[in-house]
Amino acid sequence: MWEKLVKRAFRRSIWVYHCNSGACNGCDIEILNVLTPYYDVERFGIRLVSSPRHADAMLLSGAVTRPTLPLVKKAYQAIPAPKLVFAIGSCAIGGGCWYDTYNVTGGGDKAIPVNYFIPGCPPRPEAIIYGIALALGLVDKKVAPVELKQMEFPVDMYRQTKLWEQRNVIYKLLGEEDDRYNLY
């Protein structure tokens, strides 16, 4: 459904707005780099615009720091719907290596809803183009989604219950001791 919607809403060229929420410049120069002759995203109709009000999509780079948190939210609100958000680089995805310091609130998804994540430190220009092209349906997804397996060691393997069969139950088992014992 989402894919269809995106294909309909952004059928022609999308204009992107680059928002630096506290990045180290690495991702920013790679974003600028995709405009230059070797990569040239304008051939896909992708254009960098300087105002969020002109944009269809937002490229977020950098961990969201404490002072920029409200500003990022405001910039997101200024983009007319329907809108897409790409988190570019490790910092924008999960906060990077300073995800928990005193002045960093975390990744981009702590501030605004993020639709696509483009990993890398910094991501290569090819990766950025691929990510956007994937979102627009210009290319097919190349990898099958991998289900993450939770680590099992803190829970007693021999006392698996029905609850244990469900996915992600580990958090419940770890967090709420009572639940576990209620089952017996």
């Binding site: 506290g22 180290c24 720091t65 310091t101």
Partner: peptide, 10 residues
């Protein structure tokens, strides 16, 4: 000071 990430503390 909007990009202060607390690297020294880290």
């Amino acid at each position: 000071f909007m990009t202060h990430r607390g690297i020294e503390k880290l």
